[in-house]
Structure formats: C-alpha cells, structure tokens
C-alpha cells in the first residue's frame, strides 16, 4: 500500500490573508496563531496608550475576544491586521472614555496608575513617565489617541486617519491640539522642569 507523507505547513509561515480565512473557517490553529502574531503589538500599543501594563492585559484580551467572536464580519481577509487594530483602538478609546466618566463622577481629575517602565532603574525616569501620563490624562480621548498613534506608535497621519476612521484634516487638527496642549503643560510644570534638568534634557 503506498504511503504518502502529508506535511502540514507551519502556521507561522501562513500569510495574514490565509490566517484570516482560517480564522473565519474556524480552523483550530488559527486562534493561537492570530494571538501569537498580533497580541504583542496590541499589548504594547495598549501599554503605551494607557501607561499601564495591568490594564493593557485586559485590553488585549478584550480585543481578541471581539476579534475571535466577530471574525466572520471581516470582509477583506488581506486586512486582518487593520481589522484587529481597529478593535484595539475602539477598546482603548472606550477605556479612556470610561476613565473620564469615572473621573467626572468622582469629581477628580483622572489619573493613570502608571506601572509602565517598572524595569527602569532610575526613579527620575519612572516619575517622568507618571507625570507624562498624568498630562495625557488631561487630554480628551480622541486627541490623546491620535497623539499616541502618531508619536508613540510612529504611524503616519494617513494611517492614523484610516485606523480611526477620521479625515486627515481632523487628525492633523487633533494632533496639533494635543501637541500644543501637552507642550504648554510641560513648560508650566516646575516639577517636570527639575527632572529634565536632572536628566540633562534641556
């Protein structure tokens, strides 16, 4: 009896397109591969956007829960990455709005529990991060997200516009608004000035 050897391709070498189709077809390996391929990026984005590793874990799980349960709504399999990051942006935006609402209800300015940079060795850097995210907390969710995507995720304005489903001019206005506000707040913060001097960032 002839024996044939069937070699199943390694999921890691599958294209995003193939992966998306497998995901929609409910193929077993697709969930794990999608997670392994995209969860690190989503987690890092959430960490940068929120300043919190603990919260980013929640966000990543929420994003992929939605991705996996709604994968059939993906119309263009070749845009799997964009599909996932659009969920990520929506979930982070919802989280930021939730924080704003909570802060409003409790009559306090929202403050991040910043645990980003726990591995940093110097207190100054950790404190700078906390202060940086305290300033980001003062921004509205949309300009904050635009700023994060443009400046921390290094997306182009066009990419930000596409991901956030905004016009390019709206993104530019939001970016300008965020940059101007943050720059002014930084200059007006004497504590920050001291830390900049400490680190030689003048």
């Amino acid at each position: 009896m002839p024996v044939s050897l069937v070699v199943v391709p390694d999921p890691r070498v599958r294209s995003d397109d193939e992966l998306a189709r497998a995901l929609q077809a409910g193929v077993e390996w697709a969930v794990a591969e999608t997670w392994q391929r995209f969860a690190p990026g989503v987690t890092v984005f959430a960490r940068r956007a929120l300043g919190s590793e603990a919260e980013a874990e929640d966000i990543a799980q929420e994003v992929f829960y939605r991705v996996f349960t709604r994968s059939k709504t993906l119309r263009a399999p070749e845009k799997l990455r964009s599909f996932i990051f659009s969920f990520a942006i929506r979930v982070v935006r919802t989280e930021l709005r939730r924080k704003k609402a909570r802060a409003w209800l409790s009559f306090h300015r929202p403050e991040s529990l910043v645990d980003l940079g726990a591995g940093l060795t110097d207190m100054e850097s950790r404190d700078l991060l906390r202060r940086f995210y305290a300033l980001l907390d003062r921004l509205a969710p949309r300009p904050r997200l635009v700023f994060v995507l443009r400046q921390l995720e290094s997306m182009t304005v066009e990419e930000v516009a596409a991901q956030m489903e905004l016009s390019i001019s709206t993104v530019k206005r939001a970016l300008s608004h965020a940059t101007t506000k943050l720059s002014r707040w930084i200059e007006a913060d004497p504590g920050l000035a001291g830390f900049f001097n400490e680190k030689g960032w003048r």
Partner: peptide, 17 residues
C-alpha cells in the same frame, strides 16, 4: 522638545509581553 523626549521615554518603556 521635552514632549518629544517624554514620548521617546514612553515608547521605549513599553515592553513586549
């Protein structure tokens, strides 16, 4: 300039899981 430095610090501080 300081904002750019802070953004750079935040970018580099977010580790991969």
């Amino acid at each position: 300039r300081k904002l750019a430095a802070l953004a750079e610090l935040a970018r580099g501080s977010a580790r991969s899981p």
